[in-house]
Simulated assay, not measured.
Amino acid sequence: MRVGLVGTGRIGESHAAAIARRPEVDELVLADVDAGRAREVAGRVGAHAAGSIEALLHPAAVDALVVTAATSAHAELILAGVRAGTPVFCEKPVAPTVAETVEVLREVDKREALVHIGFMRRFDAGYARARRALADGELGTLHRVHAVTCDAAPPPAGYVPTSGGIFRDCHVHDFDILRWVTGAEVVEVHAYGANRGAPYFAEAGDVDTTAAVLRLSDGTLATVQGSRYNGGGYDVRMELAGTAGTIAVGLDERAPVRSAEPGVSFPSQSPWQEFWSRFRPAYEAEIAAFLGAVRDGGPSPCTVADALEAVLVADAADRSRREGRPVLVEEVRP
């Protein structure tokens, strides 16, 4: 299989290294707006560098296309791949706006194309185990869910104005995995935000700390909390509580929490500090699933439609924060 990858920044290089190790990949070809960087990364991971991005977008140029470029280029690259008849994997988000996401969705559906959007938590062993526990009745009737996403350190000031805001940039993962694990849709969101750190978040119209209550279609209540400043480390967890039991995702030996109880040493190892080390097995499983779908002609493990639903929840949360009221997801649906 010949795979093309566009975008050789930090996450692009990590994906490239994972793809290069896949046994079904005979050749990996990288491209970037910075051709020199593409060559450097290709040398490090054992791939080849294309002369241009366009060289990977022609029909039959590659068997699969992986998009890890800047968010502003996602929609254009997905559509180019789809129109060339090439299966596409793209890191989230599909596009900077809901309108562009809908445009991509219509084209993908019209062509019945294979497009996989990168929400890697669906491939994390802990989230998969929680989903099975709920589906198999181990938890009884689900009553509440709590999700946390906290960065160990904030992103650079220059990143924030183009990030889409904390709900789109960070919590969109919580919203997607909440739908995937529970099988329910988010109906309403009441979100709050605060700025407790550097002023550049507020200057960009964003916040660095969040709390939200979500009402699901089956009546379950969920809470989501987040921060750009978590001194304990990179903290991503989920707790599901039902009438027959409670299960927690991310509560391992590297969880960035400490017990206040006497004699308790758990967790005993150094805490996670960033997303790739925490979710590396999930990222690798995600790429393996995409390449398997390409090989076998299977369905997308995470569709553009799935991505749209998560973004709509994020937009509802952001509107709720700005307007100081609960917002129905249907209010932001085009």
Rank of each mutant, 00 (worst) to 15 (best):
E91P: 15
G7D: 04
A204E: 05
H173A: 04
A128C: 04
A135W: 06
R10N: 10
V329W: 05
R121D: 01
A17V: 08
E274F: 12
A184Y: 11
A18D: 07
L30Y: 09
M120V: 14
R37V: 00
A310L: 07
R179E: 03
G250A: 03
W272I: 04
G85D: 05
E100A: 14
E103H: 13
R319W: 11
V213H: 12
P299I: 00
P87A: 00
R278T: 08
R10M: 04
D34E: 07
D176Q: 06
W272R: 10
A125H: 14
F119D: 01
A50E: 02
V145W: 10
R278M: 13
G137A: 03
D136P: 02
R179S: 08
N230H: 15
Q273R: 15
K92S: 06
A18S: 13
V181P: 11
G233K: 10
A50M: 03
R83Q: 06
Y229K: 07
V304L: 03
V98M: 13
G12H: 09
V102T: 02
Y159N: 11
P326Q: 00
H143V: 12
P199E: 00
L28P: 12
A84W: 08
R131K: 15
L142I: 04
L308V: 11
A212H: 04
R280H: 13
H58K: 12
F266I: 13
F119Q: 02
D174V: 14
P299N: 00
A255F: 14
E188T: 13
L178V: 01
G245I: 11
D176W: 05
V257F: 15
F275K: 14
A305I: 10
V45N: 06
H146T: 10
W180Q: 09
A191P: 14
